[in-house]
Amino acid sequence: MTFAAVGAALPGLLNEHLVSILNGLAVGMLLFTMAVGLSLIFGLMDVLNLAHGAIFLLGGYVAFQVIVGEGQSWLAGLAVAVGFGAVAGLALGGILRPIRHRGHLDQALLTLGLAFVLSDLATIFWGSDFQTIPSPVFLQRSVEVLGQFYPAYRLAVMGVGFALAVVVYLVVERTQVGAVLRAAVEDRAMVSALGINVGRVMLAVLALGTALASFGGVIGAPILSLSPGVDAEVLILALIVIVIGGLGSIPGALVGAIVIGQVQSLGTALVPQVAPFALFGAMVIVLAVRPEGIFGSR
């Protein structure tokens, strides 16, 4: 086939699948929301938090309790869940503290044990039935995009995801708080010498990361719904996203999320036969070409 023929075929193909491309972005931003907390904790603290999925699920359940159980507003549910996530992060800090001097492996393993415990506790409190948080009333409709109906909530998720990406990037890379964070990672002693309590800074990072996990649980619940098993699903998706992007890199997580979103959406639309293999296949291909992810450096 000549280039001209490809060029002629391409716009038609894209037109046909514009909705899939748009949806790939929405899915990608949802994935970013799921993964950003995991990426942040790994990037700044070198701790692989395998309890991330469990905290995501618990955050969703907490918001479910507030919104559906107590009949409170969506924002109230979101706020309580984020607060819960932050507290969970502080608790995680306390739990990790006694083994801070040990290797990364032990810390990751500890969070794996926590994941088992937390997901079972979630089943004890909320049962193994499906629970879901309805999307906010003003988003419970479909809008016409490109001649097809598209759920408004997904458009909102897309916006939230982008906003989150910008905010987290700016905080970590462009503010003084972020500078302290990064410096604390590079040279603990130096930052301590400046009179800054590094332990407290690290605790703040943990709290922020788990608060984001919990936030993701609330945002994701209307699309994924909540039940046992969702924690593992989310953990694996989030790991794929940050590994493809390059561990610990916020732009990497964003790119990884968008890549996976498109693979799952546009990829499936183009070649449905490979859909079941697309998710992990994409990761294998990326790591075969770049063993440390797209933005990986270490």
Binding site: S20, V27, S265, A269, P272, A275
Partner: peptide, 19 residues
């Protein structure tokens, strides 16, 4: 036949049906 257990999003299949 969307894949079992690995799909959280059915949009591509729904678009196909719609088409």
């Amino acid at each position: 036949f969307p894949p079992f257990g690995t799909v959280s999003d059915y949009q591509p299949f729904l678009s196909q049906i719609q088409g």
